[in-house]
Write a protein that binds this DNA or RNA. Sequence first.
DNA 1: GTTCCACATGGAACGCCGCTCCATAGTGGA
DNA 2: TCCACTATGGAGCGGCGTTCCATGTGGAAC
Lengths: 245, 245
Amino acid sequence: MATRTRRSQRRTEALSRERIVEAAVELLDATGEGGLTFRALTERLATGPGAIYWHVANKDELLDAATGAVVTAALATEPAEPPDSPQDRIRAVAFGLFDAIEDHPWLSTQLALQLSRNPWGSVTPGIFESIGQQVRALGVPEDSWFTATSALVHYILGAARQNAANTASARTLAPGVDRAEFLDAASRAWQELDPDDYPFIRAVAAQMREHDDREQFLAGIDLVLTGITALHLPGEQGRTSRPAT
Amino acid sequence: MATRTRRSQRRTEALSRERIVEAAVELLDATGEGGLTFRALTERLATGPGAIYWHVANKDELLDAATGAVVTAALATEPAEPPDSPQDRIRAVAFGLFDAIEDHPWLSTQLALQLSRNPWGSVTPGIFESIGQQVRALGVPEDSWFTATSALVHYILGAARQNAANTASARTLAPGVDRAEFLDAASRAWQELDPDDYPFIRAVAAQMREHDDREQFLAGIDLVLTGITALHLPGEQGRTSRPAT
DNA sequence: GTTCCACATGGAACGCCGCTCCATAGTGGA
DNA sequence: TCCACTATGGAGCGGCGTTCCATGTGGAAC
């Protein structure tokens, strides 16, 4: 967040970390994960590698910054109808990330990498914070905050990733075929798996054909929310007999 | 463990896809994700790239095969005490994956990549199948199988990944410092974040210092299981409970 | 026992990558 | 006016995944 309000425009347009990250996001959106190259970036910005490396340490940092920029924007967008409960706010955050991952397919991979490589960088804590604040607002006891938030975040990111992968596969494998047709074909392929090895996947394949993505995603969130409510807020829903740890 | 009963040994030892994958896993374990190189692999196997490419299409396929081999082994290992309920079997599968990811840090990244790139390859369906069969055994109605299984799988892989990232960070950043000291330091760092931007993370940082990883992991699984039970098995809420560890 | 050929091998080389180095142009302060 | 410093862009390095191809090899056919 450097204050680059100065009028120091050496060339037609000043180079800045912000402009580099912006170009990186555009490049990723346009050409996919493999399309972000320092050579492609230098061409698009009409400069050389040295100039870029003056503002950015290396490619990983650039990818992190691009991921952070998109995620921050996704977390900042306000939902259409203002949520009036913590549950609705969690759903709003979840769909914000869901849509961002669908709009930027590379984000899926990048978030996963960020979560496994340096989980406590700048991006992940932002997501945890957004969800965690609502978990707290639900009234979950403090010693369960981390568990509840983890369950929500991991489901949200995992399911959104899987959804985006379906969309991407549909686009890549058969550009003319739309998503529904792709899922239909995939569903039929799963049903031809060995019944002895994959009885469950075969059985579940049928419903894949006619499911609504967002509804499915929402159902998973509600499942986790139900678990949180039942386990930690015994007054409001079913009580369970499991003693607190 | 490899059945090398064939007599077709052209050289001192025959090259085979199996032996290549085995060497790749060893290389990944020893030198990390970046250590798997076709050059390192040719040296270790005392051969040339051409010989390897005869058995394996490209590096991605090799990584997939290595991931598949480790995951299959993890799913196949029987738990110490035989589980007698679907819940226990789910916990056993979860800990099998948890331990595998902890033993092979590269697996974390690789599973995430596999889930986002081609989610319906050979590895992911195996995991879905293992969990899904137990979800079915729980008595969950068929139209909720996918949702329940997704929630479990995504939590398991996400939480295991995060745990492995902590272990790996502890090893990488300070080889002499053990995991507890690392978490302690990280916890203190989080508590110094801006209270306005990160109130939740700050508050949660304290419990990170003294939590037990496996217990925490288990608590998340039980949370999702509770959600499944409460939402889909209204009559049997007590069934989620487990004996105190 | 000899011939033969498809399978299998390993080394050389190609193109692209991230990244470093460096000469130098522009710019604000003394 | 000059200087010190920031910022730039191009040339080039080492390493990567991958391809190509000449050559070795062992079992089947005769």
